[in-house]
């Protein structure tokens, strides 16, 4: 069984919600990423989403765009990010890691080579923001071949018939985009999240994690009440940016502290 499913099952049995943390690989510099991942796990993160920096991150708000730009200044790439996962796996063979990024770096590498590299390194799932199911057929086949989960997005605007199609292709978990907007947006509407999640719930058994606009333990807890977990990203990336000139140790500990607080809120 894939690590994502294992983790989700275990959380479910324990009656806990999944805490999914997003950081950008190599932000603010490559030397902090591995230690940050370890620290996030130590402070209670269940799944790590490692953002692959891209020159044109169309779905990101200002905060995460800046994270991508900081990483790109250090020439962080898909290849170097996969290498970080490989190092992470030397110590941690349980925490699921999902690569989250845009299609072009993967296209450039070639689907087959990418799938082999990612599986080899111990990646568990791939979420390609600008690859809706219609365009994901070929990548999907490659990910299946090597046993990687393909994580798809559902949005407030996704129609019921589309939800049905997408959940039939998805595996691992479903990422529900909580609002119409970009990452880090500030207009989360809990009522609409709740009603959409219950609509989706009727069509799939897959775990539902909710992301975009989740800023702290309280909002993480609120959205995950109707789903199985919460994805938190901009808050971490924002802190990375503030501490861009601080030492690695300071960054790691600050990010860890944020994670510990969110975990506390989520479990309260």
């Amino acid at each position: 069984m894939n690590r994502i499913t294992q983790r989700m099952n275990a959380l479910n049995e324990a009656g806990r919600k999944a805490f999914v943390a997003y950081i950008v690989s190599g932000d603010p510099r490559p030397s902090v990423t591995l230690e940050t991942m370890n620290e996030l796990v130590d402070k209670g993160v269940d799944i790590i989403e490692l953002g692959i920096p891209f020159s044109d991150p169309m779905a990101e708000g200002k905060v995460i765009q800046s994270g991508h730009e900081r990483a790109l200044e250090h020439n962080v790439s898909l290849t170097s990010s996969i290498e970080v996962v490989k190092q992470f796996r030397e110590r941690d063979n349980e925490t699921p890691v999902v690569l989250m990024g845009y299609a072009n770096p993967i296209e450039r590498k070639g689907y087959q080579i990418f799938a082999d590299m990612a599986a080899d390194a111990g990646v568990d799932g791939v979420l390609t923001v600008d690859l809706p199911p219609e365009e994901a057929v070929d990548l999907n086949a490659e990910l299946k071949r090597v046993g990687l989960e393909n994580i798809f997005l559902l949005a407030p605007t996704t129609t019921p018939s589309r939800i049905r199609d997408i959940v039939s292709l998805a595996s691992g978990f479903i990422y529900y985009v909580s609002l119409k907007g970009v990452t880090g947006a500030g207009h989360l509407d809990l009522g609409s999240v709740k009603s959409k999640l219950s609509e989706i719930r009727k069509m799939t058994e897959l775990p539902l994690c909710v992301g975009f606009g989740i800023k702290d333990g309280a909002s993480a807890k609120a959205v995950s009440e109707h789903g199985d977990g919460a994805v938190v990203g901009s808050v971490f990336v924002d802190r990375m940016g503030e501490l861009a000139n601080a030492s690695d140790a300071e960054i790691v500990s600050a990010v860890g502290q944020l994670a510990a607080n969110i975990r506390l809120g989520l479990d309260s």
Binding site: P132, T157, T158
Partner: peptide, 20 residues
Amino acid sequence: ERGHFGIYGGRFVSETLISA
């Protein structure tokens, strides 16, 4: 009908924009 010219074109956007 899906906007392809051979291998080119298509619709590579995040899910939120598909319905629009």
